[in-house]
Design a protein around this nucleic acid. Structure first.
Lengths: 156, 156
DNA sequence: CGTTATTGATCAGTATACTGATCATCAGTA
DNA sequence: TACTGATGATCAGTATACTGATCAATAACG
């Protein structure tokens, strides 16, 4: 463990760094301007119409203070709309726009290409195993970060 | 792949997020105030006396513009010293201070505890396999980020 | 019903990462 | 040697993440 390159934490940072670079390159090559974080938020809003920001944050494990800026940028690009909820005047209900929906569909091939690209050094079986191991480690550590994953309406 | 939770890119972000949180918690519990990034830089400086910033960046795969701020903070904490090189007046030679060396040694147990904590959901064999797979994926993607790893003096 | 606790959202401040530019210096070549 | 290109470092600007605080609004409870 003495070596930096054998530490899970260092490798996590490095793999994430490459994953983001690959994502941005593929998405830009496809003619879009969207970050990995913005993409995940957009997809989650599409799948959960009228979610509020806190629930959305839980669905994709974002910090509540981070999500404000992400939504700002998605709204500024005209991909989502943020409007005050009638049931709870504190909450902002998020919905995807027609352009957001079009973008989401058009960008999907590039996103999937990026997923393949970032594990291109691995065999298919190894890629699946990497995903499984990360999922397992993440599940065990979910509560250790300030922004844990919160399943849909399960506990609400 | 349709599901967010099956995408390597999303898992990479999440695992990194947990890894950082665990690191900071362990280090703070041990009575220190050092980020994962600062720790890696400090350790690399200790192992490579009088490195310049660009070489250091390559050793730990940091962006050259990021390293400036990291060194600023390490220097402000009194852990490293930055001085102009005599051979090349553009370069800044970095060295660890006595306090930096003490800190590095004292903090190591906490850093190793953090490495174990972030894979606590995995068996020992699974943890090793996760490390191997990340290393392999990273090696194949090394050149895809702006801040690739550059081995020591190998190609200089 | 009114007080208290909780919750949704945002803000200020700090720390990575990156894009692209600039500046000084160095190296190689005509 | 003068010029050109490459290199080390830094800066401005943008985008995640997080800490901790604040504010409005809702929920819970006596």
């Amino acid at each position: 463990m003495a070596e930096m390159q054998d530490m899970p934490g260092h490798l996590a940072r490095r793999f994430q760094q490459i994953a983001v670079a690959v994502f941005l390159a593929e998405v830009e090559a496809a003619g879009f301007d969207l970050t990995p974080v913005q993409y995940a938020a957009l997809a989650a809003i599409a799948a959960n119409p009228a979610v509020d920001q806190i629930t959305l944050a839980g669905l994709i494990a974002y910090d509540r203070t981070t999500i404000t800026g992400v939504i700002d940028r998605l709204a500024q690009k005209g991909l989502v709309v943020r409007q005050a909820s009638l049931r709870d005047r504190r909450a902002r209900e998020l919905s995807i726009t027609a352009e957001g929906q079009r973008t989401l569909e058009a960008i999907t091939p590039a996103v999937e290409a990026a997923q393949r690209m970032m594990v291109r050094g691995l065999t298919k079986a190894e890629g699946k195993e990497l995903v499984r191991l990360m999922q397992k480690a993440i599940a065990a550590g979910n509560e250790l970060s300030r922004a844990p994953l919160r399943e849909g309406a399960a506990e609400r």
